[in-house]
Structure formats: structure tokens, C-alpha cells
């Protein structure tokens, strides 16, 4: 049996302001802050790598605690809201998605910290090669993260769906870098330690793109109530959610 709907009669009262609406606004703002902080961490870690700036890398490492604390705060707020306010419909999806997205963003922060630690070590050595592919990967991953978070702000599910489809692009660059760095190591064994660091950085960026994809899928669920994970919609080109 399908859903039956009828337009409401004229005179339906406007949404009522509730005394606990501010709690939901705070929750949303913490999630937005977490998204911005995570993106900044990734940007700074790549900048530190490319510029050989160990000081900037140290700042990234030190700032990871901020994301960890935000994740804990968002979890606390979500648990409290579910416990005391019994949310349903969009609100319930927001609280569930908020908890999941904050976990993804915390993991993005961890990956950025990992990149920063490797940037510190690499800053003491000569660059193995000019950094081209890694900044390119980072840019794509950051664009994916931005688009996923934009969906949270404006409900643009088409852009979120595009994020899911871009994940393959990052995977492809990651594989290409693996092949290239492996050949470096075979030809010049003295490059092994630097090449391995870069392989891990590449893997971290690939993971960041995965987390951005997760967030995009979560935001589609929030906006549409539709779970697109592992569906053909996120794999195929075209098609609307």
C-alpha cells in the first residue's frame, strides 16, 4: 500500500516556535563548525607538506584536539536531544546524520593530522619529486567535502550525489601514485622511506574523499529521507535522487 496524501486545507497554522529549537540550532552550528575545521586542517596539512613548513604541520597536529572535542560535544547534544525531545521525521534524521557526519569529520581530522606528521618528517629531507598529484588529490577531496557540507546547508542533493561519483576520481589518482612511487623505490632504494611517506599521504587523501562521500550520502538521507549508500544511483552517471 502506498502513501496517500491530500493537500492540507487553507488555514493550516504556521510552524510553532518551541522552547528547545535553539538546541537544534546549536547542534547544527557545531556540525558546521566541525566541517569547516576539518577542511581547514586538511588544507593546512597539505600546505605544510608542499612548503616543507614543519611549524604549520605542528599547528595542525595540535589543533586535532579541537575536532575531537567537537565530536564529543555533538554526540552529547544528539543523545540529549533524542532522550529529552523525542525527535521525529527531519529532526530525527538530522540528529542521526549529525552523529554519523561528526564521526566522519573527526576521522578527516585524524587523516589531516597523519599527513601533518609525515610532512614534519619529509620537511627534513629533499622532496622526492615535485608535488603535483598530491595537491590535486587534496583539492578534489576538499571540493568533495565542501559540496557535501553545502548540501547540509542548502539541501542541494544533486551536488551531494556528484560527490559520491567523484570518489572514483580520487581512487584513480591514488592508484596511479602508488604505481609511480613503487617504480621510484625499485629504481632508487634510497627513496624508499620518502616514497612510503607519500604513499601513506596519498592513502590519507583517498580516505578523506571516502569520508566526504559518506557525508554526502548522509546529507542526501537528511534532505530526502532516502538511503543511497551502495546504490546504483551513486555509481551511475546522471539520474536524480
Amino acid at each position: 500500500m502506498t502513501t496517500q496524501t491530500t493537500p492540507a486545507p487553507a488555514g493550516f497554522p504556521p510552524p510553532m516556535k518551541r522552547f528547545f529549537d535553539t538546541e537544534l540550532e546549536t547542534f547544527r552550528s557545531h556540525l558546521i563548525l566541525m566541517g569547516e575545521t576539518a577542511a581547514k586542517q586538511v588544507r593546512s596539512s597539505i600546505k605544510a607538506l608542499v612548503e616543507g613548513n614543519a611549524s604549520l604541520a605542528d599547528q595542525v597536529i595540535a589543533a586535532d584536539d579541537e575536532l575531537d572535542q567537537l565530536e564529543v560535544k555533538i554526540d552529547e547534544e544528539a543523545m540529549r536531544y533524542m532522550n529529552l525531545r523525542a525527535p521525529v521525521a527531519t529532526e530525527l534524521r538530522l540528529v542521526i546524520v549529525g552523529m554519523k557526519a561528526s564521526h566522519d569529520l573527526e576521522r578527516v581530522g585524524d587523516e589531516a593530522t597523519g599527513i601533518a606528521k609525515r610532512a614534519v618528517r619529509l620537511s627534513a629531507e629533499l622532496p622526492l619529486k615535485p608535488y603535483v598529484d598530491i595537491p590535486r588529490m587534496a583539492n578534489i577531496a576538499l571540493e568533495m567535502l565542501r559540496d557535501a557540507l553545502d548540501c547540509f546547508l542548502n539541501g542541494d542533493t544533486e551536488r551531494a550525489l556528484a560527490v559520491c561519483r567523484r570518489d572514483a576520481e580520487v581512487d584513480s589518482i591514488n592508484k596511479q601514485l602508488y604505481r609511480e612511487l613503487t617504480s621510484f623505490m625499485i629504481e632508487k632504494p634510497e627513496t624508499i622511506s620518502r616514497a612510503i611517506e607519500l604513499m601513506f599521504i596519498s592513502k590519507s587523501l583517498e580516505r578523506i574523499a571516502d569520508h566526504a562521500t559518506n557525508i554526502a550520502e548522509e546529507m542526501i538521507y537528511l534532505a530526502k529521507g532516502k538511503d543511497v549508500r551502495h546504490s546504483d544511483e551513486v555509481k551511475k552517471n546522471g539520474g536524480a535522487v
Binding site: M1, T3, Q4, T5, T6, A8, R93, K226
Partner: peptide, 15 residues
């Protein structure tokens, strides 16, 4: 008027 009639899950998760 009957405004919406659906599975309870849909009404409370995604009306």
C-alpha cells in the same frame, strides 16, 4: 480531511 496515510515508519521518519 485525511492529509496523509502511509506506513507508520514513513509518517514518522519521512512524511
Amino acid at each position: 480531511k485525511l492529509i496523509e496515510y502511509a506506513e507508520t515508519k514513513a509518517i514518522f521518519m519521512n512524511p
